[in-house]
Design a binder for these strands. Structure first.
Lengths: 253, 253
DNA sequence: TCAAGTACATTGTCTAGACGATCTGAAGGA
DNA sequence: TCCTTCAGATCGTCTAGACAATGTACTTGA
């Protein structure tokens, strides 16, 4: 026989997936569920805890448990490799959001840090070498939606406006291009994992919310990596989209 | 003061991220940790439970808790839009795996199902319309690594080999092309979420493992969707990679 | 020697109950 | 009327202990 806590989890998972419990709707209290299934409160908690870590429900003390709602922003990595409009006053993300009638905002801070192994490999610097990190958190209507940490080798950007913690309307790619490091090619890598406590704090994530981590490494024409941006996208707030066309004539690698 | 269970979680999270506890290494028993922190076993369990749902450790009864190891396969959606080699005897995935000296295998089953709303929208059929689903689970060395469920509108493929539950070396894209539905363009969408119990079962997932869900919708030259493949990629086993080049002359949409 | 059985360590499930933390809404007072 | 206070509901944390389930390793018997 299946353990009681799993029967409870399965029962409410079904109610949610069948639509009997709609997003935003409230579940019975732990006490009530306990009576119904004939178990003590702790067992109910274990069962509902499963659904919390699955991201299906959230607990709001002292109101109860509620079915979670997911609203996703479209995220297009390919947009990054289009030229910016000449007279842009904000970046693509902010433009899109304000076109939708919502209020974009951003926090920026700059630091010099030692490259972690994953960054050192992508930027082709020594592990522990100093890199400039430009940390941004994007908000919509005051709610954090994603993290964008751009990393640059220190010697490339040390005298440019990239190291000043202010907004750069034309974008850091353009600044790099003006410095003679025009990007021609980029490699995108996407990892899926659970967030770190730091990411949970910065993004205000609830339990059961995985993240996609998008590494965007930009290369110049002579194949030198000049920037690596780490985007942390909460799973409940994003949908990553890109397009492909068939390439008939290309040789197989 | 922070609750005891979170102090325990933080302590072992630090030991793992600092490398003091290496992947595969064993943690002390619940009993030992309880003595060290001066709490009962249940509290230790709550703390270690946090790390389990974060995907950092796994419990193996009756051996104890172990630091989890992540080994990721490279997944390239863009490879899908390259022509297959003429004399291919296996698909791209199997070829790659066997080139690496590992043993690929696959289970296939075919069914007629009613389109769920998300599929109906992508294939532009009525919700509830019948579609052919070609369900595959891929294995490496006998371990499941991902799910690929390809969906086709029934009237397009009803007399073809797509509805037979056998291996098609040239690939279903080629079968569709031979039927006069050659794909020219595809839209990729990636979602991140926790797996369903069904996915956990089919993929043998441990707790704390999120999945990336990759929808690959293929369109013909006259912009009709003819296939939608849903790939479920466990986060601990994949790394999604694609490449971009800058497009100078394209108009902004 | 080899197979079957058994003791043991460890995690898994569950009970019963206590007190804390947080928000709502009602009662009471200015 | 409006603000303050406070009781109550609900989830959060923790204790103490019981028995089950599951591999491992040792013991026992043929």
């Amino acid at each position: 026989m299946e353990p009681a806590y799993r029967r409870i989890a399965a029962a409410y998972r079904d109610k949610i997936s069948s639509g009997e419990l709609a997003p935003g709707e409230r579940l019975p209290t732990e006490h009530e569920i306990g009576e119904q299934f004939g178990v003590v409160r702790q067992t109910v908690r274990t069962g509902l805890g499963v659904l919390v870590t699955e991201g299906l429900i959230v607990a709001r003390r002292p109101h109860g448990y509620f079915v979670r709602e997911w609203e996703r922003l479209i995220y297009r990595p390919q947009e990054k490799s289009r030229p910016m409009p000449a007279r842009a006053t904000m970046d693509r993300f902010s433009q899109q959001i304000s076109d939708e009638g919502r209020v974009p905002s951003m926090s920026i801070d700059i630091a010099l840090v030692q490259a972690t192994p994953d960054l050192a490999e992508r930027l082709r610097v020594e592990p522990g070498a100093t890199v400039v990190i430009r940390r941004r958190v994007r908000f919509i209507n005051g709610e954090p939606v994603n993290i964008n940490d751009s990393h640059f080798p220190l010697d490339l950007v040390k005298d440019s406006e990239i190291v000043s913690p202010s907004y750069i309307p034309r974008g850091t790619d353009q600044v790099l291009a003006d410095l003679g490091h025009k990007q021609e090619r980029a490699v995108d890598e996407i990892f899926v994992r659970m967030p770190t406590p730091d990411e949970i704090r910065r993004l205000g994530l609830g339990p059961g919310t995985p993240v996609a981590v998008h590494y965007d490494t930009g290369y110049t024409a002579d194949d030198r990596p000049v920037a690596c941006t780490v985007n942390v996208l909460p799973g409940d707030r994003h949908r990553i989209v890109f397009e492909r066309r068939w390439r008939e004539n290309e040789p197989l690698s």
